[in-house]
């Protein structure tokens, strides 16, 4: 029997699964960096988180959602990886489970599953944990290259916390941290600083970014504009005020900016669909990041900035229209 179907009769082989798998590959350098700096603890966090996310996704698709099974398309794996990357390596497993539950069930499945969620699931999970367990979420073990186990639970502070506290103390002799305590820029770039397991190594994240660009998973617009906005804004503020909390390169290379701008702000479902919209989204996200980092109680603001911008995506999608062919500019 012949088949009847509508044109086009050819379709791309780059389906959702293959795109998602490329993102997983792009996230691997950061996983390796995490292993190098935080040892088996990092592996424990990553495995727990991924396993929990995939499990919740499977259960929800099997028993709740009716529109197809999305367990096998790696989207839950990405959520799991991103959630793990946003946690310190000392995070207890049961908290990770709670985070994974919030990420997959509350932030994704409750909205209708893959493609229907408004907020980035991994970020919702992270913020939930951050607010529920602030102590555990702000313990940063000191990174040591090639160590296997955490030596005596020695902890430190993130670079962003340091620069913020330098600026908060009027009398420099009483400051908790001084400029000398800051890690070298190359250390921040490679990842030998305190922080969440996946965010420390800018180098590894940039490798992943390069891979995604090469495989055309994402366009360069969101990450470049996002980071560019932060760089520009902090530079201007640093040169005009001289305040250490605006130290531009520290903002770029430490904290979650790279991870957020490259992997979380570019999440297909929760970012605008046109290039124009993506630029607006990234610029506003960058501004919000700097505002939250510099002027709020938290030293880190990227997750809040992205979540706030996620809420604006439907609006941006409605108004950031491309130019139609034949339309005057």
């Amino acid at each position: 029997m012949l088949k009847v179907s509508t044109n086009p009769h050819m379709q791309t082989t780059r389906d959702t699964k293959s795109l998602m798998f490329d993102v997983v590959i792009a996230l691997m350098p950061a996983a390796i960096a995490a292993l190098l700096f935080f040892g088996v603890d990092a592996l424990r966090v990553i495995l727990t988180s991924v396993a929990a996310c995939v499990m919740f996704e499977y259960l929800a698709c099997r028993y709740w959602l009716k529109n197809g099974n999305t367990t096998t398309d790696y989207s839950a794996v990405i959520t799991g990886l991103l959630l793990a990357y946003n946690l310190p390596s000392t995070m207890p497993c049961w908290m990770i489970l709670i985070g994974a539950f919030v990420a997959i069930i509350l932030a994704k499945i409750c909205f209708g599953g893959l493609g229907c969620n408004i907020f980035n699931p991994a970020l919702v999970g992270r913020v939930f944990l951050f607010i529920s367990f602030p102590v555990q979420m702000t313990v940063w073990p000191k990174p040591y290259l090639f160590r296997m186990f955490s030596p005596d639970g020695e902890t430190g502070a993130t670079t962003l916390r340091m620069i913020k506290s330098i600026s908060q103390t009027a009398d420099s002799s009483q400051a908790m941290y001084a400029f000398e305590d800051l890690p070298e820029y190359w250390e921040m770039f490679v990842g030998n600083t305190g922080g969440c397991i996946g965010e420390v190594s800018a180098l590894a994240l940039l490798l992943g970014f390069g891979y995604m660009l090469w495989r055309r998973v994402i366009s360069w617009h969101i990450p470049v504009v996002f980071i560019g906005t932060v760089l520009l804004l902090t530079s201007v503020l640093y040169w005009t005020t001289g305040n250490a909390k605006f130290l531009p390169l520290a903002h770029i290379f430490s904290g979650g900016l790279m991870l957020g701008a490259i992997f979380m702000a570019t999440d297909y479902t929760t970012s605008p669909m046109t290039i124009k919209g993506q630029v607006i989204y990234a610029v506003m996200g960058g501004i919000l990041t700097v505002i939250i980092r510099a002027f709020s109680a938290y030293p880190e603001g990227i997750s809040f900035a992205i979540l706030i911008m996620n809420a604006f995506v439907p609006l941006i999608d409605k108004f950031a229209v491309q130019r139609y062919f034949g339309e005057k500019k």
């Binding site: 029997m1 012949l2 088949k3 009847v4 179907s5 509508t6």
Partner: peptide, 14 residues
């Protein structure tokens, strides 16, 4: 049936 219909489930398209 003499053919297999393999497209969107819409009478108008069919």
């Amino acid at each position: 049936a003499k053919v297999i219909y393999d497209a969107v489930s819409s009478c108008r398209i069919a």
